[in-house]
Amino acid sequence: MTEERTGIITFKGNPMTLLGPDVKPGDSAPDFRVVNTDLQPVGLADSKGKISLVAVVPSLDTGVCDTMTRKFNEQTARLPDEVVVYTVSMDLPFAQKRWCGNAGIEKVKTLSDYQDRSFGLNYGVLIKELKLLARSVFVIGKDGKVAYREIVREVTDEPDYESALAATKKLL
């Protein structure tokens, strides 16, 4: 049975339930299976030996998710190639590809959790009521450990970009 956690997030002020474990800094990063914009599978092993900044959004087609992805793209553009930046959502890969092309996104790679919801369930950020992912940020070190985690309390708010970037740069 999947763990259910309450009292962590709200969506437009309404309490929501998160499905999955409470993944914290210091934990081994759970594996996952998502697909990229070419429908190719991507998992934790694809960024082995690199630092991963994983921005998690409900949908790229909303204002806050759009802003968040653009900000991370801009603010990570000068980081070395040993840092990979992902945005994970439930959007279909075709919509992600179209959005990235229109937005000029280059550093951030979009990944879709629509097939198995494995990222959402393994990282404890799948919203039970909406079947969308809760806005969150994870930084995973080269050692495969979670170095930073923020689950944004109100889904419609932006994350703490500075703290996520500082945690990423600290691992360089």
Rank of each mutant, 00 (worst) to 15 (best):
V152A: 01
R5D: 06
P93S: 13
G49S: 03
G141M: 07
V155S: 04
R117T: 14
T168N: 01
C100F: 10
V42S: 01
F94N: 08
Q96P: 07
L92D: 12
K50V: 11
F138N: 05
R98E: 13
E129K: 04
K142G: 00
I9F: 11
V139M: 09
T10W: 11
A167D: 02
D113H: 12
P15D: 06
M16N: 03
G7F: 02
L39C: 05
K170A: 15
V137N: 05
A147C: 11
D46G: 10
M68P: 00
M90P: 01
T17W: 05
L132W: 00
S112V: 11
G124P: 09
E4A: 12
T17A: 04
A134H: 10
D143Y: 12
A77G: 05
A164Y: 02
T110K: 09
L79H: 01
F94Q: 07
M1A: 15
D46M: 04
P21H: 10
D31L: 06
A103I: 05
F138I: 04
L126D: 06
D27I: 00
G104I: 03
D38N: 13
E129V: 13
G101Y: 07
P21A: 15
A103V: 10
F72G: 05
E154S: 14
I51V: 15
I51H: 00
K12F: 15
K109V: 10
M68A: 12
T2M: 13
L60I: 12
A166Q: 12
I140V: 14
L39K: 14
M90F: 14
L121Y: 02
A167Q: 06
A164D: 03
D31M: 08
E4K: 10
T2F: 13
A29M: 12
F32D: 08
A167F: 01
L92I: 12
V34W: 08
Y114E: 00
P58V: 07
T62G: 06
D22P: 03
Q96D: 15
P25G: 11
N73S: 00
F11Q: 04
G104P: 10
Y114V: 05
W99Y: 13
T69P: 04
G20E: 07
L132V: 14
V56S: 02
M68C: 08
G63I: 13
L19P: 00
D46F: 14
R5V: 07
I105L: 12
A55C: 09
V57S: 03
E129N: 03
Q40W: 09
L53F: 03
Q75W: 15
P25K: 03
A166K: 14
M1K: 06
V108Y: 00
S28F: 11
A134D: 05
G141L: 02
K107L: 01
D61R: 00
D113E: 02
C100W: 09
D143C: 02
L171Q: 05
V125T: 12
S59R: 10
L18S: 04
V57Y: 06
V84N: 10
T37N: 15
S28T: 15
S89I: 06
I8F: 06
L130I: 06
A29V: 14
A45P: 02
F72D: 08
A45N: 03
P25S: 07
A45I: 10
K128H: 09
K131D: 15
M90Q: 04
T87W: 00
A166I: 11
K107P: 00
D61N: 10
P80M: 01
I140Y: 00
D157M: 11
L44H: 08
Q40S: 14
A95H: 03
R98G: 06
F94K: 07
P159M: 04
N36M: 08
